[in-house]
Design a protein around this nucleic acid. Structure first.
Lengths: 162, 162
DNA sequence: ATTTATTGGTTGTAAATGTAACTAACAAGA
DNA sequence: TCTTGTTAGTTACATTTACAACCAATAAAT
């Protein structure tokens, strides 16, 4: 059920300008793609650490980090800082609570809110992971010059909307 | 069931050095986080386009792009170029085939392989989307100076492992 | 030839995510 | 007070993804 001539399909015919004319641009030149690939690669080794060491998800690590770095706050506050969706936060908080990394306390003045606060265990995990994060960051950045680092941070911050 | 004194929990006590000493570093300074946020933001508007206009997923857009840009090739070849896992590619190819964006042809010399090739419809979608992608890229990059753009591309490429 | 390994690709299942609908608490208006 | 509307957070369900097991074709080894 194949075309009669076994025409050994040529798999590399570079296909210039499908629609007719313009200079082709590569996927590697497409900023969103580049960013995605870079983010994926850069996050990988650290992701493995908090996953293996504490069985944590990225969302959980982020929540832990926020509470460790900025002190007790509500889920809503975390949401505003990280732009994580509230359902993600809700689940991350539940998971962290289940592992005794944090406690919730309903606020008296508004019982919809709860103050989230790390336990001693949670603080220890935060200390451990944030130190590793810093190291990881230093390693990643180490391959660039000081100027490159500055540009990189500035541009990424801008793109991220900070 | 609350502590006796309604101690109006203070939600902002900046928490200096949980473990004791070191200068704190912010999540915004953590490269993987920055990259993720930037990638998410940068991809958003374009993602909406291919989703709304062609009901496509990111994986599908990538496969479409590869075939459109580099011509017919096997799933394996796409995998090597994009570092997408083979299951993702497999499903993306199925979806694109179902929508008549591509055809598969078993290769004669090795019947495990199939040559994937865009149909006219697929090529039209590719033309449309890649033009939009280029525009989107230009807009994103437009906010930076030429030097910044160069640095950004170089650093991201390095981080991505290209 | 007949195992044995490898490779390209698919499928099944569990985990993770997005989205919408929901609950409870507060707030405003009448 | 009694709607009506908002807000913080949770839950349910559908979609995506990850990971492992799988199948069929080829290649290598005996």
């Amino acid at each position: 059920m194949q075309p009669r001539t076994a025409r050994r399909a040529s798999l590399r015919e570079p296909n210039e300008g499908t629609e007719g004319e313009v200079a082709e641009f590569d996927l590697k030149d497409f900023l969103p793609y580049l960013l995605n690939q870079a983010a994926e690669q850069a996050g990988l080794s650290f992701q493995r650490i908090y996953k293996a060491r504490y069985g944590m998800l990225r969302t959980e690590w982020r929540v832990l980090f926020h509470l460790g770095r900025y002190g007790p706050m509500t889920a809503k506050a975390i949401g505003m800082r990280t732009r994580m969706h509230k359902t993600k936060i809700s689940r991350a908080v539940s998971a962290l609570e289940a592992r005794r990394f944090l406690t919730r306390t309903q606020l008296e003045n508004d019982r919809r809110l709860e103050r989230l606060e790390l336990t001693a265990v949670g603080r220890r995990a935060y200390g451990d992971l944030s130190a590793l994060a810093r190291t990881h960051d230093t390693e990643l950045m180490g391959q660039f010059t000081t100027e490159e680092q500055a540009v990189l941070r500035r541009c990424l911050g801008r793109l991220a909307g900070f």
